[in-house]
């Protein structure tokens, strides 16, 4: 019965709507919204610590509120970055192999940078 409701092209592909068509769109809007306060906090905080020495920087990052805000900023930033770069690649890289390779590379690098950043903040926070 369900098959008769589908277009001939849809039947040939054997694929229907996954009901997730708006997911990428929503992912970008949600992370953008979160990055407005996080980005503003981060920028003001970085400026306030311009040229800070090791002691001051460590003392700042290791305070609980700062550490939590850093972790949130890192997580949302790399989520937004991974989805944003994916959008650019899907729009401009048309060769299938190159597209797949760059999509995989972007995901791997974003996750690796996020883990490196999160680990560093936790290491600073728990050691000091």
């Amino acid at each position: 019965m369900a098959d008769r409701m589908r277009t001939p092209l849809g039947q040939v592909y054997g694929l229907g709507s996954a009901r997730e068509g708006a997911r990428e769109w929503w992912a970008m809007r949600l992370s953008s919204l979160a990055l407005i306060p996080l980005g503003l906090w981060w920028m003001i905080a970085i400026i306030a610590h311009a040229g800070a020495d090791y002691r001051d920087f460590i003392a700042w990052v290791s305070s609980p509120l700062t550490a939590i805000l850093w972790l949130l900023t890192i997580a949302v930033t790399f989520y937004h970055t991974a989805h944003g770069l994916q959008e650019v690649i899907e729009d401009y890289v048309h060769h299938e192999g190159a597209k797949l390779a760059s999509l995989v590379a972007v995901r791997f690098v974003c996750v690796a940078l996020a883990v490196a950043g999160i680990f560093s903040v936790l290491a600073i926070a728990f050691r000091h």
Partner: peptide, 27 residues
């Protein structure tokens, strides 16, 4: 600017890694 910012994130992760590594790396 989105692409430029993506590249720039490496710089700030580097800053955190340097701070986590010790005074010499941070300096």
């Amino acid at each position: 600017t989105g692409i430029a910012l993506s590249v720039g994130t490496i710089f700030f992760v580097w800053q955190l890694l340097a701070a986590a590594s010790g005074p010499a790396a941070f300096a």
